[in-house]
Design a binder for these strands. Structure first.
Lengths: 210, 210
DNA sequence: GGGCGGGTTGTACCAAGGTACGATGGCAAA
DNA sequence: TTTGCCATCGTACCTTGGTACAACCCGCCC
């Protein structure tokens, strides 16, 4: 079962050409809830501007109420930020509401297959953000195993004394490691080191020591 | 043009059923380079175990050499970590090398369409990681505009003196803001505050003050 | 007007971070 | 064996971070 959810007649008509299966049309959030009560796992082509839905926020509630229903959200003006927010809520697809029928049909098939339908640009954006935050600073590779261990603990917010307790060594030893770490990485202090470890490092400014 | 790149005969035979267009088969990295010289924008079904490729690392080099060639990487044992690493290099799809022909054909069509083909699980993982790191700590909402400003700067690794310069106020003022910030957020020191701001906060431990 | 919150600044003080001299022992490569 | 790296620890010292007393000005609301 497929549910076409939009108050826009022209839009629904366009979408109607997409599915090769039974479908049902609703024009507001109340009707949508009714349809989902009957078929809780129906795939929903959901117009983001659906009356009563409440936009992005409302989709969070919808997802909680009907976690089994895959949502393909169609926006009149897709934006990356909007897309990201929606993806966080676990939607299965995000596309332009005025997408052509062939492409929409493809999206439906892909989602039925268990995959996710996202535009290349949005996907790229997601990946970029991820890598941007993921990649630890290369200078960390020069650290010894023990130093790396200390760096990791410091990057969680522990003070030298706590790190010493964790590693069962004296605070003096931790300081010694820290001096070496800061020297190698070029981080001026433990805060910058933490940012480096967490991937928020200032990649543009290479450390003096290699 | 489509390039099937694998040293495994059985695999290539399986893949052969996928495309509805001209294709060419290669069995090692050298042949692949030759084929790409002829058609630099060909879609490549790339077996990760291709001889001479060099695994994930090699793909980075391949991407740099042939940035126009969309890559659908097929792994014998797909793993999320591997997938993430590959996505960072800008590949356009990632799937199991023993995928059935129908699904592979779909992946090819999707990529041709300009979209990205990723398994639902990997995609979900990407999103989750993204949201996990994106969300700043809720206690930051209680900060005044000025305090937020200070917190942001501190979270970039600046010391009090530098923050003072940036905001054109005295260091004493920065300290005053910091005292208030740390009190409101419950962060014991500026490092923990930075982690909070950057979304690496210890969400499990709510601050004493609301 | 008076209270209140936000932004600003001063002096003093203590704790923590980080460095500068050191030192010792283990262990692996040359 | 010697050389070098790694891990460990001590004392002394300076810098920075953060708090505890303060104080003043401004805009807003009762």
């Amino acid at each position: 079962m497929l549910i076409l959810a939009s108050a826009n007649d022209a839009l629904r008509q366009r979408w109607r050409a997409a599915p090769d299966e039974d479908f049902q049309e609703v024009t507001n959030a109340t009707e949508l809830a009714g349809a989902l009560r009957a078929t809780p796992s129906a795939l929903v082509l959901l117009h983001l501007a659906l009356p009563g839905l409440g936009g992005v926020e409302g989709i969070g509630a919808l997802r909680e109420a009907w976690p089994d229903a895959p949502l393909l959200v169609l926006s009149d003006l897709p934006a990356e930020q909007e897309g990201r927010a929606l993806m966080r809520h676990g939607i299965r697809g995000y596309a332009n509401a005025h997408i052509n029928a062939r492409l929409l049909a493809k999206a439906v098939r892909v989602i039925r297959q268990g995959e996710v339908w996202v535009g290349r640009r949005l996907m790229q954006h997601l990946i970029e953000e991820l890598t941007h935050q993921e990649a630890p600073h290369p200078s960390l590779d020069t650290l010894t195993p023990r130093e790396r261990e200390v760096a990791e603990l410091v990057a969680t917010g522990l003070c030298n004394k706590r790190v010493a307790q964790r590693l069962a060594v004296s605070e003096r030893t931790v300081k010694a490691h820290m001096t070496s770490i800061l020297q190698k990485t070029g981080a001026g202090d433990r805060l910058v080191l933490a940012l480096l470890v967490k991937g928020h490092g200032l990649h543009g400014k290479p450390p003096p020591a290699g």
